[in-house]
Amino acid sequence: MNKLLHKKNSPKRSTNLFQHERKWVNLFLLPAIIFILLIQAGPLLYSFYISFQDWVFISSSTPQGFIGLTNFQNAFSDPAFVESIQFTVFLTVFTVPLQLLFGTFLAFMASGRSPFLQVSRALLVLPMVVAPVAIGTLWRLMFNDTAGPINNHLLSFFNISGPLWLGDPFWAKIAIVIIEIWQWTPFVFIVISSAITLVSQELLQAAQVDGASRWQIFYKIELPLLAPAFFLVILFRTLESLLTLDSILSLTRGGPGSSTVNLTYSIYNKGLREFDLGTASAQSWMFMSVATVLIFLIFRFNMRMEKKI
């Protein structure tokens, strides 16, 4: 009985202890909090300040004065920036759902304990661990319309004349989508595979005994139980997709023309090639605001789903 009482009282005691020591705990945490604020909030606030300044770094090493919302107006009047938003949306809308679909499919196909499946799982993860620049170079060779294996072997086998992958604006976009799906489907695969192993086998067996079909088991049991993993994957992949830079830089460098310039690449150009730090900061803040709203919406959606489940 005493033991039980002790167990029952212990959380309260520790809470009291914590409250008693709160002053000290806060004091000890303070340096870390200040450090994090300096490291994270400092540059963010500085870039917010710059976004209202006239500052082209190549002309002056200090900001040249407050210009109100001019940098924000400049961003929207720049057709290249508007086009880059369109391509960013295109990339996210096409890559994230397809990565989710393929990754989930592969995770179910490769779930199991046989040595063959274990080797398959290891191999499926490989694209994610290859250096992005190497991936760009590799796919550049693959997409070569005259000597590359995609047109020369794969498509010609089916008597299809392959497109100018990197010379045509539409196909260059598709090429980027293909690379992104190839490289990041393994991430979805890993997360969903891990989540699958946590689904209770007893629950699945009980459903089977009750006469549920494989599809019903997947749709009514597995899918709802995997929802938190899907949420995680959607969140990460959406953010990563918005921030895509390496595959574009190494494969198309934004071309042909400006067809594959996305928001990140556009901000990089503005800030680090044109050295227009004011406009680049304004664009970054607009980008960050939209991304934050998107994250908020994904969280809201997840909460609703959890309530439903």
Binding site: I58, A80, G254, G255, P256, G257, S258, S259, N269, E274
Partner: peptide, 21 residues
Amino acid sequence: WSFSAFLDVYSRGTGDFLAGK
């Protein structure tokens, strides 16, 4: 031309022109 004017305006613009955009 400055590096950015050349790469991001003239070159890219020429690319868009060649691509038929």
